[in-house]
């Protein structure tokens, strides 16, 4: 068992909200998925992880979330003590109403928790849907509930595993705007795994391309807001990232 997020406290972190990954190795049997990886996130920084499937990006996220109990490995992971995870599927409990899903596992008096939950639902634009069942919501709405569930915990670190991967393009664009808005207000450090290059450029302060468990490219994104795909510098970054991903651009319009 590796040194683990759960075994460390925030006091080990250089600064509150910062993330440190040192010499991280994770392996499934013979196959090394993360190969002596080093990565640091400054407090409040938004880092997007790009990579082909099997590049280790989800393994990295799971290591940071402390969800890899049965995976062999070594190395050091330091994360803040308040971590929220947004999954690709909204992962709402189907037998719990929307508000109960948002406040799931919140400590403290129930009345306070529920008030905070209601406020979070207002923030994601779902006021009035507190008593709905998750099955009654659209995919985008479910993912917004999942965002509310993450934010109501006031996370220092938000881990997102292809959070908008299952949504249609229109809904995804709207979710990007919502997410940016929420992050400005709450200011957590964010690590988002995605396979969507444009999404990474639009949202992140820094993009890290993983390949075979190592960092193939790190790129700071210093474009002005709002970031526009038709901007030449946007396109330049996109080409750079696609090259690092080994994508033959004659075949793609991404």
């Amino acid at each position: 068992m590796a040194a683990h997020a759960g075994g460390l406290t925030a006091t080990d972190a250089p600064a509150r909200g910062a993330v440190v990954v040192r010499d991280l190795v994770r392996a499934y049997g013979e196959r090394t998925v993360l190969d002596h990886l080093d990565l640091g996130l400054a407090p409040g920084e938004f880092v997007a992880i790009l990579g082909r499937s099997g590049s280790g990006k989800s393994t990295l996220l799971r290591a940071l979330a402390g969800l890899d109990h049965d995976v062999d490995g070594s190395g050091e992971v330091v994360v803040p003590d308040q971590v929220s995870v947004v999954f690709q599927d909204s992962r709402l409990l189907p037998w719990a109403r929307v508000l109960d899903n948002v406040v799931l596992g919140l400590d403290g008096p129930q009345a306070d928790a529920r008030a905070a939950g209601r406020a979070a639902l207002v923030e994601v634009g779902l006021a009035g849907r507190e008593r709905a069942w998750p099955n009654e919501l659209s995919g985008g709405e479910q993912q917004r509930v999942s965002l509310a569930r993450s934010l109501v915990r006031s996370p220092r670190l938000l881990l997102a595993d292809e959070p908008f991967g299952a949504l249609d393009a229109l809904t995804r664009t709207r979710m990007h705007a919502l997410l940016r808005d929420l992050l400005t207000r709450h200011g957590p450090t964010v690590l988002m795994v995605t396979h969507d290059v444009d999404e990474a450029i639009v949202l992140a302060d820094r993009v890290v391309v993983l390949d075979a468990g190592r960092i193939a490219l790190e790129r700071r994104i210093d474009l002005a807001e709002p970031r526009d795909g038709s901007d030449p510098s946007f396109a330049r970054i996109r080409s750079e990232l696609l090259d690092a991903l080994g994508v033959d651009r004659k075949d793609t319009t991404a």
Binding site: L67, V85, F87, R91, A96, G105
Partner: peptide, 18 residues
């Protein structure tokens, strides 16, 4: 859902109940 319960840090009893 077990994973979810771990990430929102449910106790064993909360996990059973919820």
């Amino acid at each position: 859902y077990v994973e979810l319960a771990e990430t929102v840090r449910l106790s064993r009893w909360q996990f059973v109940a919820r």
